[in-house]
Write a protein that binds this DNA or RNA. Structure first.
Lengths: 261, 261
DNA sequence: TAGTGGTCTAGACCACACG
DNA sequence: GTGTGGTCTAGACCACTAC
């Protein structure tokens, strides 16, 4: 395990010291010289190894944190990130969070943060096609765990008529499973996927560093009569989750193509 | 526009100064007191305003950068991020990047970085169902622009028989449009979506800060005979892009449900 | 030339983990 | 207590932008 000091005149022209250091550590991590879960030398030691100040070492470590390669724990050290990935299918029943977890060898659980009646925001009222603009709805927030690691924050909005008969169950289980058990069948959904950096609030809920990518799964689920039953979003740790789908293009939309250059 | 100095004894117990400062600035940004595109006070001025050292101001600004709220430009200043979002449909023909751009009022263009024959990696050979494990394939990398802003890096692998007749066009246009114009029809695809933080390399291609979330759209596209035609991934800036889909659940998979708790 | 953000230093003190 | 990462300071110099 050898390191290369790079002060005064660097080889690669004008590359900052903290970049040279973090790239060198990154290479060692990706080569497996530091295994997932293992500890890096302390900031003090790294400063001595590379011959730089602690400030510069800390900047290099920050670079690695932002790339998701290491995490720090106060009083303990700097640890190489362990890799996990759970796939969720969008083609099949979409919100079988618990079934997908179990199928892939994880124990899923739920912590309810909030379940309360409130006024619908204009956006939620529109998505749930509520008659009055400020109708009462149920607002639920819960955290999904895989093997005791928080992996997702789910925010769900239910019409009153749907949530009240199932209130007790909804506060304990996964959304979709509970609805099906309550004979509320979902036959379709409009969804969108995007990604956002974790805010301070989200980073505390999901135990990730500030700014870590989170996948946002937005959904509005319908019954067979196109009546919206539930809408909301699931913000999941992108280092743990991934969404899959199978797409069939039976009839290529040639008009659409005609528009393109 | 008023600021609150918070040194020595902070109100909120034990909140670091840099967090207090970044949260206060965040609030002003989200309230619209600093409009998108406008400049914040300089680091020197912010230090004077809040009564802290420049190091602490820089840490606070870093917090905002990681949350995607501001970007910095050396010699110019700190600027509030402008919001854009382009939607791409996964249900309809999936790789109509250019049509989706045009439809949403953006001018799309492509810069080809690489188009070369190379040996297929084991993973690519498997996805393209190539007979020999190390068959020759075409490897293309290109950057997609929306109104001169780089928004995605696309990495595509083609079997030799597909790419060679269309080589000239493939190097100039969008993948899917070019294939269709070359009478290579795609009838389905297996896709997955995840998110990763930008590495130094990706942050340079896409002009984003280190660690910014990128959406990764992995795909293997098939012809009607299930023969893979193309595979690859599109890494797109999550501050510019979002994927949508409509899901139909005609026959809820009850066996699958039976497995869940 | 003046103003901006980027890099780097040396040093102090605090909060947390572990034995 | 010792060692770890977290916070914060004061100050220096550099690189880039704009006038």
């Amino acid at each position: 395990m050898t390191f290369f000091m790079v002060p005064s005149e660097q080889l690669s022209d004008r590359q900052p010291l903290h970049v040279a250091i973090s790239e060198q550590l990154k290479q060692k991590i990706e080569a497996g010289e530091y295994e997932p879960g293992s500890r890096l030398p302390s900031e003090f030691d790294l400063g001595a190894i590379f011959g730089v100040s602690r400030t510069t070492v800390r900047k290099a470590i920050t670079n690695l944190i932002q790339q998701g390669l290491v995490t720090t724990q106060q009083g303990k050290g700097i640890f190489v990130t362990e890799k996990h990935k759970i796939s969720f299918s969008m083609s099949n029943p979409l919100m079988y969070f618990d079934a997908a977890l179990k199928q892939q060898g994880f124990v899923g659980s739920v912590q309810s943060l909030r379940f309360q009646l409130t006024k619908a925001s204009p956006e939620v009222a529109r998505k749930l096609q509520l008659p009055q603009p400020l109708a009462q709805i149920y607002w639920q927030e819960k955290i999904y765990y895989a093997n005791d690691t928080p992996i997702a924050l789910d925010i769900t909005y239910y019409p009153q008529a749907i949530a009240e008969p199932l209130a007790a169950d909804l506060q304990q289980g996964f959304t979709y499973s509970t609805l099906v058990k309550g004979n509320v069948l979902l036959n379709g959904a409009k969804v969108s996927l995007e990604s956002v950096p974790a805010t301070y609030e989200l980073s505390e809920y999901l135990a990730v560093p500030l700014g870590m990518p989170l996948l946002v799964f937005n959904y509005v689920a319908y019954q067979s009569d196109r009546q919206p039953v539930v809408c909301g979003k699931t913000l999941s740790r992108s280092d743990w989750t991934c969404y899959t789908a199978e797409i069939d293009v039976d009839q290529p939309d040639l008009n659409f193509l005609g528009e393109s250059r």
